[in-house]
């Protein structure tokens, strides 16, 4: 176990340069803007924003780039990410207000994306070049080719516009009233979980009803990548000699696949988690926008449309940090699944 701890410590050290790099990239993009435009990055209220020249002087926005970078970075590290004009609140407040929506969608979408992708990839590999393989591959290619925003629109037009089953937004008006009432206790900000903790089934069902389409949409467009990796890694593992060895022991074909091959084939899939997170972020920007779920992605999209520079840059920085942390977790998981990694 000691080796696992040192391994984690080493990986933690390794993410520092990448995080610094990401911050430099974001800062470099910001430097394209004029000092006047950049002033919004340093203030936390609209009143302060009106005194543009004082801000430029105070934060040295006319000084050399490297000096500005350190001023900016220390600001960022203190949680001062500027003022979001699209939301009329400081950027950091936007994060603290909006994260539950995005997290709620993500924690339901991610497991389904993985499950569907792994299952399809497995079927596809086992029945290589036979009908199930072709069907699974076509499904994956179709999902891969669908524009996220279009599939969302089609889902809404059918299931909301026509059938009226799954409305957009996070909650219906009645549920909203309950959530806003004084009896409601907010534990996490995730309505499905809070509803269960409050013992309110009505809100729970309403929240699930609103989550269904966004999650479905993310699963449709998101599983293709995992399916492909699973398929090729299954095919590779099926060719390994330990499969023959297991067969020569008399292990049943089903057990060979489920016990021996799948666990090995999942190892490359685990490394995909970073890519999955990146895909989810992108998917959330679009899906939240179409389904009017006021989360981080919705905010980012609207900020971009309204040229709200601090918000977009902060969101980009945030996704970069999330990606790096996701990869860190993956590496630790990887060491757990694959005993060979731990010793290195």
């Amino acid at each position: 176990m000691g080796s696992l701890a040192t391994y984690i410590a080493r990986r933690l050290l390794l993410i520092i340069p990448t995080l610094l790099g990401v911050s430099i990239l974001i800062f470099a993009i910001s430097m394209v803007f004029t000092p006047e435009q950049r002033a919004a990055l340093y203030v936390t209220s609209p009143k302060a924003a009106s005194k543009i020249y004082q801000i430029i002087k105070k934060y040295g926005l006319d000084r050399p780039a490297h000096e500005q970078y350190f001023t900016w970075l220390s600001n960022v590290l203190r949680g001062n990410l500027g003022y979001s004009k699209s939301m009329n609140i400081p950027v950091i407040r936007a994060f603290t207000d909006l994260w539950p929506t995005s997290v709620e969608i993500a924690i339901y979408a991610a497991p389904f994306i993985v499950l569907v992708g792994v299952k399809l990839g497995k079927i596809s590999a086992i029945y290589r070049d036979k009908l199930p393989d072709h069907i699974a591959r076509v499904l994956a290619i179709v999902g891969w080719s669908l524009p996220t925003f279009w599939s969302a629109i089609i889902l809404l037009a059918i299931f909301y516009g026509w059938l009226g089953w799954f409305p957009p937004g996070r909650l219906g008006p009645e549920a909203q009233a309950i959530v806003r009432s004084s009896e409601w206790v907010t534990y996490t900000g995730l309505y499905t979980i809070d509803a269960l903790l409050n013992g309110n089934l009505f809100v729970f069902i309403d929240a699930v009803r609103h989550l269904f389409l966004p999650v479905l949409n993310l699963v449709i467009v998101g599983n293709a990548g995992i399916m492909r990796v699973m398929r090729s890694s299954m095919l590779e593992e099926l060719n390994k000699e330990y499969v023959l060895a297991a067969r020569s022991k008399g292990v049943a074909e089903r057990d060979i696949i489920n016990k021996h091959v799948t666990r090995n084939a999942l190892i490359p899939v685990v490394t995909m988690a970073g890519v999955l997170v990146a895909g989810l972020m992108t998917g959330l920007v679009i899906t939240e926008t179409v389904f009017e779920l006021k989360g981080l992605g919705y905010w980012a999209a609207h900020a971009a449309e309204q040229l709200d520079i601090p918000s977009v840059l902060a969101f980009a920085l945030f996704t970069g940090v999330v990606f790096v942390i996701a990869n860190l977790i993956v590496d630790v998981l990887y060491a757990y699944i694959d005993p060979r990694v731990r010793l290195q």
Binding site: G21, I24, L25, M281, T282, V285, L313, F323
Partner: peptide, 23 residues
């Protein structure tokens, strides 16, 4: 390659959003 890693760290659409905003 470090630079490549950094570009990879931010999802394509979101980084492109930032670039378009800047350009």
């Amino acid at each position: 390659m470090r630079i490549v890693d950094i570009v990879y760290a931010i999802p394509g659409l979101i980084l492109a959003m930032a670039f378009v905003l800047a350009l």
